[in-house]
Amino acid sequence: MSRRTGVHAHQLRYYEAQGLLKPGRGTSGYREYADDAVLTVTQIRRLLEAGLSTQEIGYMLPCATGAGPDLEPCPELLDTLRARLHGLDEHIDTLARSRQTLHDYIDATERRVSPRHRRCDTTLPDQTPA
């Protein structure tokens, strides 16, 4: 399955542990995947790319109908998708505010730089002196 999907075996085992994949077991004990498992793994990967948790994917996977973003309108499906989108939008807004604040600090500090100012002698813990 790993070769067929390009997904590492440990990820497949994780999907199985999360209840997203349900392989059978052969007489030798090896996992045996149904014919539709490749499509299921593709759906899982696409939903992960959308930022959904494996718990959310477990809820939505029965609604997935194709390799792309094809979902049947199952109950509460749109609520889950909209809630995730709202969370991402809030996170993006927070990052944008942080980015602007950093720009403001940089701009204000650069305006104060003059040839007479000496460099600060402080170094942040994760930086090396210039």
Score class of each variant (00 low, 15 high):
residue 1 M to L: 14
residue 3 R to Q: 13
residue 4 R to F: 13
residue 6 G to Q: 12
residue 8 H to R: 15
residue 13 R to Q: 13
residue 16 E to V: 13
residue 19 G to T: 13
residue 19 G to K: 08
residue 21 L to Y: 12
residue 23 P to A: 15
residue 25 R to M: 15
residue 27 T to G: 14
residue 28 S to G: 12
residue 28 S to P: 13
residue 28 S to A: 14
residue 30 Y to V: 04
residue 31 R to Y: 13
residue 35 D to P: 04
residue 35 D to G: 06
residue 40 T to S: 15
residue 40 T to M: 15
residue 42 T to I: 13
residue 42 T to V: 11
residue 42 T to F: 08
residue 44 I to W: 10
residue 46 R to D: 03
residue 46 R to S: 08
residue 48 L to Q: 13
residue 48 L to M: 09
residue 49 E to T: 10
residue 51 G to W: 06
residue 52 L to E: 03
residue 53 S to P: 00
residue 57 I to T: 02
residue 59 Y to G: 12
residue 61 L to H: 07
residue 62 P to W: 04
residue 65 T to W: 02
residue 66 G to N: 10
residue 68 G to E: 01
residue 70 D to Y: 02
residue 71 L to Y: 00
residue 73 P to R: 13
residue 74 C to Y: 01
residue 78 L to R: 10
residue 79 D to N: 10
residue 80 T to S: 12
residue 86 H to L: 15
residue 89 D to S: 02
residue 92 I to P: 00
residue 93 D to K: 08
residue 97 R to P: 01
residue 100 Q to G: 03
residue 103 H to P: 08
residue 103 H to A: 07
residue 105 Y to V: 13
residue 108 A to Q: 04
residue 109 T to D: 03
residue 110 E to K: 09
residue 114 S to Y: 02
residue 114 S to W: 03
residue 115 P to Y: 02
residue 116 R to K: 02
residue 116 R to I: 01
residue 117 H to I: 02
residue 118 R to M: 00
residue 120 C to P: 00
residue 122 T to K: 09
residue 124 L to G: 09
residue 129 P to F: 05
residue 130 A to F: 10
residue 130 A to S: 11
